[in-house]
Structures are given as C-alpha cells and as structure tokens.
Simulated scan of single mutants.
Amino acid sequence: MSDPSTVDANLRQRPVLAVTCGEPAGIGPEVSIKAAWQLRAEINSVLIGDAAFLAMIAAEIDPQIRLVALSQQALRNNGLPQFPQDRIAVIDCALDAHVKPGLLDARNGRAMLRMLDIAIDGAQQKIFDGMVTAPLQKSTINDAGVPFTGHTEYLAEQSATAQVVMMLATDRVTPPLRVALATTHLPLKDVAAAINFDSLSRTIDILHADLQNKFGLKQPRILVTGLNPHAGEGGYLGREEIDVIIPALQAAKARGIAVSGPYPADTLFQQKYLADADCVLAMYHDQGLPVLKYASFGHGINITLGLPFIRTSVDHGTALDLAAAGLGRADHGSMIAALNAAAQMVRATVRWAD
C-alpha cells in the first residue's frame, strides 16, 4: 500500500464513489469492475463485494486490473486510504455461498443487503461522496427471509428518509431526458390510491430541490403527466387530475416552482414539449419508463432523489442469462453512465465546491 502522503494531490480531487456489486450470479460484478477500471483516472470507485470473488473476475477480464482488499473494520478505524490510479479498492463483504454464474442462491441474499449497508453508512459518514449500485435480484433477498421491495425503498428506510423520488435519465437523446415517478414499485391497482395532494406535493418539492442542488439547474422546468388516459378528459375518464393533480400543481406554482400539466402521457413525449423541459414527472412506473428505456436501454441511469447522499444506478437488471454464458458479453455502458452522473452530481454540490 502506498503512503498517502506520497500520492499525487490531484488524486484527491477524484470523487470517491462506493459501488455495490449487486447479485453475484448476475452481470453486476463484471460491469462494476470494468467501469471502475475504465474511469479510474476520473473517479475513485470503491467496490463493495466479496474481495476474493471480485479478484477472480478481474483477473479473467484483464490481468492488468489491480484490486486491493480492505476490511470493514479498517475502513471504520482509519477511513479510506489513498491509492494511486493503477489499483481499485475493494471493501470485502463476504458471500455466504459459492457462486454459480446465472444461478440464484438465497444464501447470498443477506450479503447483498450488507453491501448496501456498508455503502449507506460510508455515504452518511462522508467517507464516500456518493454511491452507485449494480443490479440485484429482489427474489433472492426475499427468499432469504428478508422483505425487500427494491433499492429505492431500502435506501429510504435505512437512511430514515420519509420520502424519496425515483428518476431515470439518459443523455443519449437531445435534449437529455429525465423521467421522475410519483409512485415506484406498486401494483397497478394500488397506484391511484397512492397519489394524493400531500405526497404529490412532496414529490414535486423533492424533484425541484434536487434538480437545483444536484444538477445545477437554477429554475428547473417540470412537465407532469396525468394519471388517466387523455389526462382524464375533463373527468370523463377519471377525476384524479381534477381532484389531486391540478390542485397540487397550482400549489407548487404558488411556491415558485416551474411546473405545468397534467398532460396526456401518450402525447407528452415529443420533441416540441421536451425541448423546453428539464424533467417529466410521470404518475407510475410503466407510464414513463418505457419511453426512456426505449431511447437508451443499457446506457440510461436510475437516480434516487431526496436522500441525504447521492445515489445512482444502472437501468438494467441482473441479466442472469448473460452471466451464465460467461464473462465478456455484458455491456457496462450503463454503469459508466451511472458513475459519470454521480461524479457530476458530486462536483455540483456545495460540499465539493467548498
């Protein structure tokens, strides 16, 4: 290990991002290692996962990749050492069962949560400037006996955040497209009941604040979809627009937020509307995300707004079939985008600027 005093001071200007490697039987470990290594000159990525397992994968990907294992205890006692750019730090989080690529094993479910806990704790302790998550398999965690809905909800719970907002984004189209959600992982039958004046107002406030504070947009412009087809068509196709969405938008405008709508979701995603917008707020998961994923799948990112730390993620799943077929088939473009976006957000924060 190098003496921290001998490390070039410029290295300290690299944002330090925790990268949880996700479902070990999927492509998460591969894309995490590839992206961390490719961006090592600009970003100090700290991988969180089973150190021996990650070292084995790294050696198969590229023998030049150098990983340095750290224990959780060393991290707590001494903080994160400064390493030169020719090596990547790994915080060791041991798995509980041998990994067979492409095959899920519930015995490793709790290890994935331990990875997240390490990243959350480090971000809250300011050891990390932010965190980036590789995909995990929800069923593995649930099969391990732990109720788990998704990254977004878990991060909110563990950080004691009352409400968060899920947003996906891509710069693969012009202008860049951002789509936030008023509700996240809910059955469709429960969506309408989950949208009320208070929750929608808080969502708008969180979205507005983070677009300002983490994206550097002085007066973000937000377009909001309706819930029903044709945005309710004046009440003939539902009253949620009249009773909930319009009043929430009017109240947001009174608070100085540049928000407009509700617009029919089937016609909103056109250049003539999006050209003058910084973000679209959709009412539910499959209303807004298919458009974005069609435009950028494999190169988009997931961002959790409202947390007390920065969190981005890839826009794809564990791809167990690719993992089973062997290393070298997974595209790490989305992880590259997630790391770059988190680093840009870090640099936009007041703490970084200070």
Rank of each mutant, 00 (worst) to 15 (best):
T318E: 08
V259K: 01
L322I: 15
R239Y: 08
R347P: 06
N340Y: 02
L237K: 01
E60L: 14
I246C: 02
Y273L: 13
L70R: 09
A248L: 08
G22S: 00
T267H: 01
T183M: 05
P29N: 05
Y284P: 02
L292A: 05
P81W: 06
N228A: 02
L237V: 08
H316M: 12
P247M: 05
P176T: 12
V164Y: 02
Q163M: 13
L67F: 09
Q219S: 13
A36D: 00
K189A: 15
G150P: 05
L223D: 01
A251F: 06
S159K: 08
M345C: 07
H151V: 04
A338D: 11
A258T: 15
L186M: 14
L223E: 01
A319C: 06
T318I: 14
S71I: 14
A180K: 01
A275C: 11
V68D: 05
A254C: 04
R76S: 15
L320W: 13
N108H: 09
T133F: 10
G150N: 09
D96F: 00
I120G: 02
H285I: 14
T20F: 03
T6Q: 12
Q287I: 12
I310A: 08
P264N: 09
M112S: 04
D3W: 07
V16R: 15
G28H: 10
A51K: 07
V244Y: 01
L292N: 07
K272P: 00
G238P: 07
R87V: 05
Q13M: 13
T170D: 10
P247W: 04
E42K: 04
I301P: 04
V346N: 01
A209C: 01
E233L: 14
G306P: 10
A134S: 06
G238N: 10
V132H: 00
H98L: 15
V99S: 07
P247L: 05
G326L: 05
N10S: 15
A55Y: 03
D278R: 02
